[in-house]
């Protein structure tokens, strides 16, 4: 397999959700691409697949999964990977991503993104599985940092160290979820800027932006709000460090009208363009 390379900057996208199917198909939009939840379209037929193929005629599609369970100690699910590959081939996905997490054990599936202990044992395990998944899919994948609500006594590495080593050793990309960095930084009291600064520049393929909820003792990653100010601030830092990386606004609950979601994506574009333009200014220019 060819070595991982940072994908082209395809601009700003949003998640393709059924609430917006009719709007997206009826007229041009001001977003550049769509991200799908892979599993929602890994079906035999019917309306969702038809919609997806019609959207694909006009936009690049990025596939984002929730069931890879890369950190589980159960065997990899080959049926799942076969179906994932078929869908990726069919939509000519710009890239395929999932989460640094596990979703079940003993044959059970929780359908949640469960946290990993950041131990040497887990590191070996994840690196080996990412390599096998990439072979099976015939392409490099990107892994997203999850939001988390607990840390394990067994962890000997920080999350960012773990993610960076996985990416280097398995030769995969990183989907840097800026909201997740912020949520976890509050929940576990770490410095989100230092987290970002320890992620290798060339490994970040995509950013996620989203909103969260404040539950007092912790923040919960709910994707049901506009992007809040601290996440915008962190995004500015991310763009400064990682450059013009494709950026997606996630909004999965209390989904707003299309115009509101589109405006949030346009705001991300404005923020990113301003920082990238400033970086390109020759020294001494005013």
């Amino acid at each position: 397999m060819t070595p991982a390379t940072k994908p082209l900057d395809i601009g700003h996208g949003v998640g393709l959700r059924r609430e917006h199917f009719a709007r997206v198909l009826s007229a041009p939009t001001r977003v550049d691409w769509f991200e799908i939840i892979s599993e929602n379209f890994m079906v035999d037929g019917g309306r969702p697949l038809d919609i997806l193929m019609r959207v694909r005629r006009d936009y690049p599609v990025v596939m984002h999964g929730v069931s890879l369970s890369i950190g589980s100690t159960d065997p990899l699910d080959m049926d799942y990977l076969d179906r994932l590959r078929r869908l990726a081939d069919r939509v000519e996905a710009s890239w395929v991503s999932d989460h640094l997490c596990w979703t079940g054990v003993g044959g059970h599936n929780t359908h949640d993104l469960l946290p990993m202990p950041y131990s040497e044992e887990a590191l070996e395990h994840v690196v080996s599985r990412v390599s096998r998944v990439q072979e099976k899919l015939g392409r490099r994948i990107a892994l997203e940092n999850p939001s988390s609500y607990l840390t394990f006594a067994a962890s000997s590495l920080s999350e960012s160290e773990f993610l960076a080593v996985v990416a280097e050793r398995a030769d995969c990309g990183i989907l840097l979820d800026v909201n997740n960095v912020y949520v976890s930084s509050v929940n576990h009291r770490f410095d989100p800027v230092a987290y970002m600064d320890s992620i290798p520049r060339n490994r970040v393929w995509q950013f996620h932006l989203a909103g969260h909820s404040d539950h007092g003792a912790y923040l919960l990653d709910t994707h049901d709000h506009p992007v809040p100010d601290p996440v915008w601030d962190l995004y500015r830092h991310a763009v400064g460090r990682f450059g013009a990386v494709p950026t997606l606004v996630e909004w999965d609950a209390n989904i707003p009208e299309w115009d509101v979601l589109e405006a949030e994506s346009l705001q991300a574009r404005k923020v990113r363009d301003k920082i990238v333009a400033a970086e390109l200014q020759p020294e001494g220019a005013s």
Binding site: T73, W102, H108, L114, P117, E121, F152, A154
Partner: peptide, 22 residues
């Protein structure tokens, strides 16, 4: 148990995690 630690290994951690959240 994981070697050199009082923490359970990855498999046992995940099994306990599942038992308790379910």
């Amino acid at each position: 148990q994981g070697s050199g630690s009082d923490s359970p290994d990855l498999r046992r951690t995940q099994e306990l995690f599942w038992d308790l959240i379910a």
